[in-house]
């Protein structure tokens, strides 16, 4: 299997605060890759670096073999133009903790927006596909509702459908269930589980250890901007080697 995401010594600072202190990891194509760790450990920041919502300060980050945000010619790096960055983001779907649905559009319009605006898909075609995707996340009957008329879990599922509408090769999930009522978490995880079974490459920042254990193929525990421990989720979660991992897991499990 090839690497969908490859990080080599990735550093990221906000002002004087160094959030990522050299991350090395590899996400294989088709796998579900879980990032866990305490808040402030840099896992969300790393996720946002993958689609260049944050610029990295040092190291190299590759998606599908291509450098993120830069082009290398000889030993010189050239920043990509905004349009080139946008072009690359088409292939990477992202799901946010706070959903970030467009509130002035109905559910189906949210899903249709990017294919129409970015890919130039016809309206009728985009609608047909959007309805299919809403059906897939179990919200066919909510197509005409505005986000404010949907529950958190429903909004997050629309957000997943919206990301899928661009037919991404990689999906990023930034704590997708952290803002949800406990009761609604299950619906969203079910959709993600389906997606994993369909073979989608997924990088998931999560606090849902059950999901990581069941669905995850690899797991990384981050703390203080570094990777502390990594491996098979079942091994790491049941038999953590590192002391920091042990103390974290003892608190959340």
């Amino acid at each position: 299997m090839t690497a969908m995401v490859k990080a080599e010594g990735v550093h990221k600072s906000f002002g004087h605060v160094e959030v990522l202190k050299g991350i090395d990891l590899e996400v294989k194509t088709g796998e579900v890759f879980c990032l866990i760790g305490p808040s402030g450990s840099g896992k969300s920041t790393f996720l946002r670096c993958i689609n260049h919502l944050e610029k990295i300060n040092a190291g190299r980050l590759y998606v599908d073999g291509e450098l993120v945000g830069y082009r290398q010619k000889g030993d010189k790096l050239y920043e990509l133009k905004d349009s080139e960055v946008a072009q690359k983001r088409r292939d990477i779907g992202m799901v946010f903790q706070r959903f970030n649905l467009f509130p002035h559009m109905t559910a189906v319009e949210n899903v249709m927006e990017a294919p129409i605006q970015v890919k130039g898909t016809s309206k009728a075609q985009a609608r047909e596909r959007a309805l299919e995707l809403l059906e897939r996340v179990g919200l066919a009957d909510k197509a005409g509702n505005y986000p404010s008329q949907l529950s958190g879990g429903q909004q997050q599922r629309v957000a997943i459908a919206r990301a899928l509408a661009m037919d991404p090769k990689l999906m990023l999930f930034d704590e997708p269930t952290s803002a949800l009522d406990p009761e609604l978490v299950g619906d969203v995880l079910d959709v993600m589980r389906d997606l994993a079974e369909s073979g989608m490459t997924m990088v998931v920042v999560t606090h849902e250890m059950g999901f990581a254990r069941e669905v995850g193929d690899s797991l990384v525990f981050m703390d203080g901007g570094v990777v502390v421990e990594s491996g098979n989720p079942r091994d790491v979660l049941t038999n953590p080697q590192h002391e920091r991992t042990q103390s974290f897991l003892s608190k959340v499990l």
Binding site: N51, L53, D82, S83, A86, Q87, K88, R89, R90, I92, G93, M94, F96, R98, N100, L101, F102, E113, A114, Q117, V118, A159, R162, A163, M166
Partner: peptide, 21 residues
């Protein structure tokens, strides 16, 4: 909300389209 711009950018929409749409 800044999250709106981020979501739009993450979908591959340009600055102009994000602003307009």
């Amino acid at each position: 909300d800044e999250g709106q711009t981020e979501a739009s950018h993450a979908l591959g929409m340009s600055h102009t389209k994000t602003l307009r749409r």
